[in-house]
Amino acid sequence: MKKSIYAIAFAVLFLSACKNDQKQAESNDVQSKEMQEGNNMDADTQKSGLTTAIIDGYLVLKNALVNEDSKKAAEGGKMMLAAFSNFDMAKLTDSQHKKYMEIAESAKEHTEHIVKNPIEHQREHFEALSIDINDLIALVGTEKTLYQDFCPMASNNKGAIWLSETEEINNPYFGNKMLKCGSIQKQLN
């Protein structure tokens, strides 16, 4: 019995290692291809610590929505608002600045709604907020490894994205009603 458990554990380890290797190889492939084409600057997410506090708040919010915890979601929202007001805009380039202001204005407005509303309304604003944060990362970058997930049933079947720190799908739009609905669209970093 014990032996077979060890055997299974080994097999799982071996398989997951293979999977990782494969993924690594794939991403290396993609990278070298992009480098050859000379457009890796645009395609890759920049490494930047500027957005870390904002994303930390976002992830607290996201995980609270997964867990149907409206109060905790509001806390995540508050973390985000604080992070936005502490954001060091002096570190942005001129070309980033205007776009950042638009994104930040929109994101803050959605976050304010999230801070003071019940969970259904929080989820409505979380949808638009996720697009804002995704665009913010595309603009400024992040030092985190994140996954852009997509749920085709969210937003009245129009579909909506969210960002996650884990590869595992945990759906913030439906919580425990449809926890596993969705798939990874893209890996950032």
Binding site: E102, I103, E105, S106, E109, A128
Partner: peptide
Amino acid sequence: YSKRKQKSKLKSIIS
């Protein structure tokens, strides 16, 4: 309003 804000306002108006 910025395009971003217009779009998100329209969405809120509709809902």
